[in-house]
Design a protein around this nucleic acid. Structure first.
Length: 602
RNA sequence: CGGGGCGUGGCGCAGUUUGGUAGCGCACAUGGUUUGGGACCAUGGGGUCGGGGGUUCGAAUCCCUCCGCCCCGACCA
């Protein structure tokens, strides 16, 4: 099979009906491009998705996929399917509307909170629109799988998911309804899980390579889904919502939410007598540091959090930022937010800005750097005053020490010590080793060869299909529009007759179009009675990788002009050789996006 | 959830301050001239001005209320 047919193998070299021929003519297709950027679109992928006529908005965070957008979605899905199947995945389709009972069994009915779309049926039974599918798939497997002989199982689906996001934004980047591929692995034991995980790691790498994306795999936090080992696949882009750090010297890369912070030693001093000093109007770290002429590194920043109704104090060095993900993991709580100033004033008996750990009677958590401080400055819990020469352990007790701060660029790599770089990324995929979290909650077991019941060991693996489409545009565009990698383009070739009034051009274009269709190329004929400029602009905007122009000159010469979208390179090709030339071009373009199939296999 | 902004034909906008019954560009339709990078001329269709209520002889415009959409923030003491 030629490379260009990998997405649609069954379309290879078949005779097409007149309807099928017609559906790839622009005059017959629902393609509407916009000359101007809609006011609602802020980032380039959102703007181009709308302008090129790939999507339209239905409600905030909810979109219609127009025919061209649908084709891209199908292309990405097809690549994902191939890679899932290649590594042993079996496709199924799970319900969107899911009964509350399953979610109550795993306690996530409450955990998910406001983000879950909930509904009731006519009998007043609770349901939700699936934000994810661990419950429903585990329920299926616990009923269908009894024996170790049926394992391992890798089951996946490509399906809409629903999350009522606090703030949907950036078009397809963060929607409330989105298309996701999710695969769940069921193994006998940890060893099996690790093998499944490795396979998916490779499959994901292949998928994103084939989609033409520049991405990095990073260590991540497992969040609400739970589990231990997890990696995120990040498409590098300025507009990405996630911050990552990575090391150039070794392979370390992590989401900042997860990135381990190495405590940095501050200069040790012999402990001095603690001293109350007046710091009128100095409330912020900068103000206090400036007023007392000490480095922010010697300040103790005291934050108050409300963790499931318990108030805790969190201590960090003055120049550091708290990492709420680490904090929440450490506290193992469902809700975590900064306490409101009124509560703080009650607890510390002092206004915010002068609070500190000395004499506090709430639980005190400290970042690993805090015990390393000597003669530090902290709020005195008295308006207008701070303490100097505060020494942890002597002047206040720390209840728990943990890594609670955010890593910054320039800090040493936790693996090799070289300097870390930072970048922004769009999370297009995440893989998790769940372990037995869900099989335990849902009592999903199998019987091993000794007749013993064992818990299934699970993994889950997601790819944001619709988000990948947006990410691809973020990385592949210019001022004229989208530049699709050929692997996911809505069509590989667009044929543009310059004038539809010139019979010879129309004929030549139509003939070439049919020849391309029969050769299995994905081709679109822009047969609209428009000026050439309009069709060129649309072709650039929509981003077909190859454009073929049929004009008066080319017809006279018996040639066509073939132009590549990504390089702008254009050359005349003999009409008689056009089809085979295009096939070759397409195949060559495909070769840029080859995946790796060495090593791990199903 | 808090703050800000916006809502006028498919898209982008003006008109709102100072009430008088809706306009521009693009797109669309028809005809003509054009035709290798978003042509030009002419004619035409399309809007209960986000919804509801109120003030007024009269409301896109003033008041009340609800809704939708976008952006920023969500407290680093």
């Amino acid at each position: 099979m030629c490379l260009s047919h990998m997405a649609y193998p069954n379309r290879c070299c078949v005779n097409l009906s007149n309807e099928e021929v017609a559906t790839m003519k622009v005059s017959q297709m629902l393609i509407s491009t916009l000359r101007e950027n809609p006011a609602e679109a802020e980032i380039v992928s959102h703007q181009l998705l709308l302008r090129a006529g790939l999507i339209r908005k239905s409600a905030s965070g909810i979109y219609i996929y127009l025919p061209l957008g649908m084709r891209v979605l199908e292309k990405i899905s097809a690549i994902v399917r191939e890679e899932m199947n290649r590594f042993g995945g079996q496709e199924l389709l799970l319900p969107i509307v899911q009964p509350a009972e399953l979610w109550q069994e795993t306690k996530r009915w409450d955990v998910y909170g406001e983000e879950m779309f909930r509904l009731k049926d006519r009998h007043n039974r609770d349901f939700c629109l699936g934000p994810t599918h661990e419950e429903i798939i585990t329920d299926l497997v616990r009923r269908e799988v009894n024996s170790y002989k049926q394992l391992p199982l890798l089951l996946y689906q490509i399906q809409n998911k629903y999350r009522d996001e606090k703030r949907p934004r950036f078009g397809l980047m963060r929607g409330r309804e989105f298309v996701m591929k999710d695969l769940y692995s069921f193994d006998r034991d940890q060893e099996g899980l690790e093998h499944s995980y490795k396979k998916m790691y490779q499959a994901y790498t292949n998928v994103f390579k084939r989609c033409g994306l520049d991405f990095r795999v990073v260590e991540a936090d497992s969040g609400a889904i739970g589990g231990s080992t997890t990696h995120e696949f990040m498409v590098l882009a300025e507009t990405g919502e996630a911050a990552i750090v990575y090391c150039d010297e070794c392979d370390y890369a992590a989401n900042v939410e997860k990135a381990e912070a190495i405590p940095m030693e501050t200069e040790k001093e012999p402990a001095a007598e603690m001293e109350l000093v007046a710091t009128p109007d100095a409330r912020t770290i900068e103000e206090v540091a400036g007023y007392l002429k000490v480095s922010p590194k010697r300040l103790i920043k005291t934050l108050f959090y409300r963790a499931d109704d318990e108030i805790v104090a969190v201590l960090l060095r003055g120049d550091r930022e708290v990492n709420e993900v680490k904090l929440q993991n450490h506290l193992d709580c469902l809700q975590l937010e900064l306490a409101d100033p009124k509560q703080i004033e009650e607890i510390a008996e002092s206004p915010v800005g002068f609070v500190g750990p000395v004499g506090l009677n709430v639980k005190i958590l400290a970042d690993k750097e805090i015990p390393l401080l000597t003669n530090a400055v902290a709020g005195a819990n008295r308006e207008g005053y701070h303490y100097k020469n505060v020494n942890p352990g002597r002047d206040f007790e720390i209840d728990e020490v943990a890594d609670l701060r955010q890593v910054e660029a320039g800090e040493p790599c936790p693996k090799c010590g070289a300097k870390l770089n930072s970048a922004r990324g769009i999370e297009v995929g995440q893989i998790f080793q769940l372990g037995t979290k869900y099989s335990e909650a849902l009592n999903a077991k199998y019987t091993d060869e000794n007749g013993q019941e064992q818990l299934l060991v699970m993994g889950c693996y997601g790819i944001g299909i619709s988000r990948t489409m947006a990410a691809a545009i973020e990385q592949n565009h210019d001022e004229n529009g989208i530049i699709w990698p050929i692997t996911i383009a809505p069509a590989q070739v667009v044929i543009v007759p310059v004038s539809t009034k010139e019979e010879a051009q129309v004929e030549a274009a139509e003939k070439l179009y049919r020849a391309c269709l029969n050769a299995g190329l994905e081709v679109i004929l822009d047969d609209r009675d428009e000026r050439a400029g309009v069709k060129f602009k649309d072709a650039d905007l929509i981003g077909y990788p190859i454009r073929v122009t049929v004009g008066k000159r080319t017809v006279n010469e018996g040639t066509v002009d073939v132009k590549l979208r990504h390089s702008g390179e254009e050359q005349a090709v003999q009409l008689t050789e056009a089809t085979s030339h295009l096939k070759e071009l397409v195949d060559n373009l495909f070769k840029q996006y080859q995946a790796q199939y060495e090593g791990i296999t199903a």
